[in-house]
Design a protein around this nucleic acid. Structure first.
Lengths: 127, 127
DNA sequence: AACAGCCTGCTAAAAAACTAGCACATCCGG
DNA sequence: CCGGATGTGCTAGTTTTTTAGCAGGCTGTT
């Protein structure tokens, strides 16, 4: 039974920060939130997210450090899949192409090599 | 002055369907919504989205056909950027690598060729 | 013309999200 | 030992979101 991804705006903001940082205290999250609400509000949301099972905390150094319960890998994959179906007609290739677009990002030599390698691998497996 | 993406949960659902389909009637959107609300509710949201400038409609065949106002390309780019910073530490290369992962999708020969081409191009421009 | 079917606009009210602030605990420096 | 700084739990209130349903328009059919 996986957590039913139906988060509100604030909850999503918080989850995203957590995914980005891996783990964070309420104060850190509060800091990171763009449209900053009250510290209190953040804490309340964290508790609520914990209730719903999206987040867990461990006491550390007198305060709580929160982290997402879901495996980051899973979350990543699911987010990618969602984006691909929403914006790229379900085609991962198109999404990848958009990422490779040189206008938006320049990749290092190593990264390019790595990607080439992946493509080669895909070629072999496809055959 | 572009529309400030501050949508509620339902509004987001609707916008995503619109991006996915390009254009759709209220009934079609209603159909597509996972956690289905009332038809009436969908129409209300559409009107509200139109007020906020996220959506436009044209009368067609006695009913309204809605479509996103924003350029799809812009939306795509922004969604990608957001996802990359949230889940891939800001590295487009890692995101691309995830997309190429053969376990999640097998790409056609043509797609692979195309991607190789893009990588080559990036190599040249990087130099 | 009267009706059913499908559509829109609108509004009031229910539901959910969001928030502030209090009460209480711990730690630390004076 | 006493305040200030920082933390949490909780609860009640406000604001926003989400919803249903009414009123009415247009079409085509009988």
């Amino acid at each position: 039974m996986t957590a039913p991804l139906q988060l509100s705006r604030r909850e999503r903001q918080i989850m995203e920060i957590l995914y980005r940082r891996g783990r964070a205290t309420a104060a850190e999250i509060h800091q990171d939130i763009a449209d900053r609400p009250s510290y209190s509000a953040v804490r309340a949301h964290l508790r609520s997210l914990e209730d719903k099972g999206h987040v867990r905390h461990e006491a550390e150094d007198l305060r709580y450090v929160y982290s997402p319960t879901g495996q980051p890998a899973k979350a990543r994959k699911s987010a990618l899949a969602h984006l691909v179906t929403t914006f790229f007609e379900g085609s991962p290739a198109r999404a990848a192409a958009a990422l490779l677009d040189s206008r938006s990002a320049r990749l290092s030599e190593e990264e390019l090599d790595h990607l080439s390698g992946l493509i080669e691998k895909a070629r072999k497996e496809g055959r």
